[in-house]
Design a binder for these strands. Structure first.
Lengths: 337, 337
DNA sequence: CTGAAAGCGCTTACAG
DNA sequence: CTGAAAGCGCTTACAG
């Protein structure tokens, strides 16, 4: 029963075919209760025979609702974010939302553009993992946005918003304490950029653990670099050139840690023996690093589901007070330490 | 300049504010050329001052267009698909589309539901990675669908559609020929289900390579199992119990291969020495398997961009003849063989 | 349950 | 460029 291009079957067509009014047909597609079984079945039959598909877009326009939600992440190829996406998806689809996906690749411009596009598409709300250096203008715009928004992973200090993240400070402290317990006293902090809040938080945790153990802080052991494998290679190479090189490395995340291990191997050293290495995030593949990586689990999937829940609540009640959910990280000990 | 909840600024508001007609304002937001600089700037200024956001949904409804596209994949946590997603995204965003994402987890029901939802949201087209056993009803429905659709990764024989995939047969042949060249004559084919077309194609390639080398086919070396790491463990365990176990394994994909390597280790054997292992897909993490995996690259990102291009073409010209794009795989030799 | 009317925010087509 | 009108496919509200 192919239809000609462009001739969409409308609710009116269904009503005519079933011999009822459009209003009645409308009630039926929306599952209204007080409709007799007889007419309901008659209409449902017509729907099937005509191949009618409900036009949610028209319905939403009229009723001023939305059944879509935007999700803006940093990088889909990063398992941390694809896991977060899975969490968001599972939670939102349960509630009948469909998700628009956008990837910023950490570019403020891209983020700006994605937000616009999603607004133009009348999303009911947005879950945003903000880029690390959101511009003043972007922040201004977001704060004037008239729709529910939940921040995830990274916070924007200037913005009063629902937020789901993890306790980077505590996670870093766990990691560094573990290294100290293993007998290390020269512990490097490798990778990441001091501009991002995620880095600052980690540094605080790193400081706290060292101070509590009475270890002096040596700023030369803190080596910034990009949050990539390459960044890890470069950072550890630089660390090895120090007069007294570190015996352990706390890495910004698992990718950096992988680079650090690679850099060690290139220098003829054995990760886990010549230098202990700890990562962050517990990305799936850390299990098969060689050696398997000790890391801090940051539960991206859970971040996703929690963010979705917050958004759902916020959409239901715009006046609800703001919530911050900070998940507690866990140390996962493997062979790299 | 916060607005009250629900009071959306409309094009009419902008027109009033700028002192022009709504028709003129409409032309300007759509970047029509024949408008004088003066009025254009006046209107753009009003847009900024009022914080107007274009309602693409209303516009699309009126003009019977769509600026969204649906992408239905099997599993977002699988790097093969997240890579494909990256390809689709890059290509489609260039053309101004926004993408609705759905994940089937290989369930026919889920697929059915996602298709419905996307249609209801008036997507302009769909890129579908079909589930492995799409039901007759689903196939019926898809074939009666009135919108552009492109299949990717898996083909549905009963369906005349644009398609982008890779040459599984050739890829399998490459892999098995490589093993034969290495001196192996008892080569197992592990994992996957004989129901899927992807499995059948691989088997044909496997047969072809063996036959050309004059090696008799031993059906007991073909061991089906789920397409997971666990499936790989089980399959290889079974293979090792054969009277004359294989000396090499061609695995359905990289995950299965990882399971196979794990199974070998559990049995006290060394992958790459006691048994050669080849995977399929060249998922990123194969580089860090131990040993690094020899595998067949299937270019998921390229599949994504090609599928997006096909869809874009199809949307522009519904009558265009169908295209099938079959990408040629490449063998990537590492230490597991 | 029906029927007629109005409206969501836009585009289209046309006379001026 | 303007202005008035119609329409995309639905929902809403109301009298019967």
């Amino acid at each position: 029963m192919k239809r000609k291009k462009g001739s969409r079957v409308t609710l009116q067509d269904v009503a005519n075919h079933a011999g009822v009014s459009r209003a009645t047909a409308s009630l039926i597609v929306r599952n209204s209760p007080n409709i007799s079984e007889g007419t309901r079945n008659k209409v449902l039959k017509s729907i099937r025979e005509l191949g009618y598909v409900y036009d949610r877009v028209a319905a939403n326009l009229r009723s001023q609702q939305s059944t879509t939600v935007g999700l803006i992440i940093t990088d889909i190829a990063n398992p941390f974010y694809s896991d977060l996406l899975v969490g968001v998806h599972n939670a939102l689809e349960e509630n009948g939302y469909t998700v628009f996906l956008g990837t910023t690749f950490d570019s403020d411009k891209k983020q700006e553009k994605l937000l616009s596009t999603m607004l133009e598409h009348r999303v009911g709300g947005v879950i945003l993992c903000p880029v690390s250096d959101s511009s003043k203008e972007t922040i201004e715009r977001i704060s004037h946005l008239n729709i529910p928004i939940v921040l995830a992973v990274r916070e924007i200090k200037e913005l009063q918003c629902d937020y789901v993240g993890i306790d980077y400070r505590e996670g870093s402290k766990l990691a560094v304490e573990h290294l100290i317990k293993k007998g290390h006293r020269r512990i490097a902090f490798l990778g990441g950029s001091s501009e991002s809040s995620a880095w600052k938080e980690r540094k605080i945790g790193y400081y706290m653990a060292l101070e509590e153990a009475g270890i002096d802080i040596d700023e030369s052991l803190i080596i910034e670099n990009t949050v990539t494998r390459e960044g890890g290679v470069h950072a550890v190479t630089k660390a090895l050139l120090l007069e007294t090189p570190p015996t352990a490395a706390f890495c910004f995340n698992d990718f950096v840690a992988r680079g650090v291990m690679q850099g060690l191997k290139e220098a003829g050293l054995v990760p886990g023996e010549d230098m202990a290495v700890v990562g962050f995030d517990n990305v799936q593949e850390t299990v098969i690093y060689s050696p398997p990586l000790t890391t801090v689990s940051s539960f991206p999937r859970l971040i996703g589901t929690e963010a979705a829940k917050l958004l759902h609540e916020r959409i239901a009640d715009q006046e609800r007070e703001q919530k911050r959910i900070i998940l507690q990280p866990e140390l996962v000990v493997r062979q790299s330490t």
